[in-house]
């Protein structure tokens, strides 16, 4: 596989639409989605763009190792067992797969996407922005939005576990920041990284023009105490390929060190981190598995289509 820098693409392979209904769907496309977000629910208009037997809702349980594909089998997918996932996705060979990550948790979409990408499937990811986030009715300083009830804590994403060796003892921590400073704080408290080795990524431009300020405000305390504000990188909040490119550049300056990519911000950023991890043998994805609050977002904003296989130069 090639890196973003070496693909010589003039623009990252992404397109944005005002509505999900505007997304062009290739013939015999397969849709994979989850409904953990209101905006990711599939209405008749959207599902009719796909063949009747090509729409697969994934249902999540409390387990981080299993998920159910309702239209495939009553036996849950084992997310740490490649054969279990392949048994399902191999039915889509030769067909374009649209994976809508909007309403799926990271521990579900990442292992499935890994199998799709490594299996050479033509894979496109869809992400719908919320129109807006619900404001926190009782904000403390720096907390405007009420997004998570709590976090389950750090558990590896299935198929992305990493067993460190001694050479991993001075890793570089790359937190992909969102609004919730408490998640960044939890990360730093658990990992106790060297303060010189934190390179936060901040979504600039954000989904909305004011969002980067909220990111700074929400994370200001720990950005300040860890002094990591000095090393902040600005990366388009809606572009996974920009994250990939920025990580690629970071890898250039840190050729042998373990990169710990903490997906605690936007889903497109998490997608970029995951794609980079697929291609780089020396990085680890960290995720704290938040339990999302109900009605945390309102409405649906722009919809993005990411040509993942096109980015890697296959599946066209």
């Amino acid at each position: 596989m090639s890196t973003f820098a070496s693909t010589k693409l003039k623009a990252p392979p992404r397109r944005s639409f005002n509505s999900r209904d505007d997304v062009p769907v290739l013939a015999h496309g397969v849709l994979i989605y989850g409904e953990r977000e209101e905006r990711s629910q599939v209405g008749p208009g959207w599902s009719q763009r796909f063949d009747a037997d090509s729409v697969f809702e994934i249902s999540e349980t409390d387990s981080l190792e299993q998920a159910s594909v309702i239209a495939f089998s009553s036996t849950p997918l084992q997310l740490r067992n490649r054969s279990s996932i392949e048994e399902w996705v191999n039915k889509f060979l030769g067909r374009p797969v649209y994976m809508d990550i909007t309403g799926l948790s990271h521990h579900v979409w990442m292992p499935i996407l890994r199998v799709l990408v490594e299996g050479g499937f033509q894979t496109l990811c869809i992400y719908s922005e919320p129109e807006k986030y619900a404001a926190n009715p009782h904000p403390k300083p720096g907390e405007f939005y009420s997004l998570s009830e709590r976090v389950r804590g750090f558990f590896p994403i299935p198929s992305f576990s990493r067993l460190p060796s001694r050479s991993d003892r001075s890793p570089v921590l790359v937190p992909l920041l969102g609004f919730e400073g408490v998640r960044f704080r939890h990360l730093v408290d658990k990992l106790e990284p060297n303060e010189h080795d934190i390179v936060p990524f901040i979504g600039v431009p954000g989904f909305e023009v004011d969002y980067p300020f909220h990111t700074y405000e929400g994370n200001s305390e720990i950005l300040s105490t860890s002094r990591s504000w000095q090393r902040a990188e600005y990366v388009d909040a809606a572009c996974p390929f920009a994250v990939y490119s920025a990580l690629d550049a970071l890898r250039g300056s840190q050729p042998r060190r373990l990169l710990q990519l903490a997906a605690i911000g936007t889903k497109p950023h998490a997608l970029g981190a995951m794609l980079f991890a697929l291609n780089d043998g020396n990085c680890e994805i960290l995720h704290d598995h938040p339990i999302r609050k109900k009605n945390r977002t309102v409405g649906t904003g722009k919809c993005h289509l990411y040509d993942v296989s096109g980015f890697f130069g296959f599946g066209q």
Binding site: S63, L64, E65, Q66, Q78, R80, N81, G153, F154, F155, P156, S161, R162, L163, P164, K190, L191, E284, L286
Partner: peptide
């Protein structure tokens, strides 16, 4: 002892005994 690493050896897809064997090897 890193949280993310040690938690790699847990989950409902293996028995506790098997996790202990794998963790012991690690």
């Amino acid at each position: 002892l890193n949280t993310n690493t040690v938690r790699s050896f847990s989950g409902s897809d293996q028995s506790i005994e098997e996790w202990n064997r794998l963790f012991g090897h690690f």
